[in-house]
């Protein structure tokens, strides 16, 4: 699954660790999700939506 995490982080000037802290997960998780190695569960995807204050489908994109 593709995502816009890198761009969204850059817009907010957040490091992967900053985002991980906001989500309550490890930096490795953010890195794996951002690079497409791991697709998050639906609850975690909703957390991303809450943190970025935007709908899930504007963060995660269909392949």
């Amino acid at each position: 699954m593709k995502n816009r995490l890198r761009v969204l982080r850059a817009e907010r000037e957040w490091s992967q660790q900053d985002l991980a802290d906001r989500l309550g997960v490890s930096r490795q998780s953010v890195n794996a999700i951002e690079t497409g190695k791991y697709d998050p569960s639906l609850p975690l995807a909703f957390k991303f939506a809450d943190v970025f204050e935007m709908p899930i489908e504007e963060i995660f994109l269909r392949d």
Partner: peptide
């Protein structure tokens, strides 16, 4: 472990 990726 609360982090689902680490659990995996």
């Amino acid at each position: 472990e609360s982090d689902e990726f680490l659990r995996l």
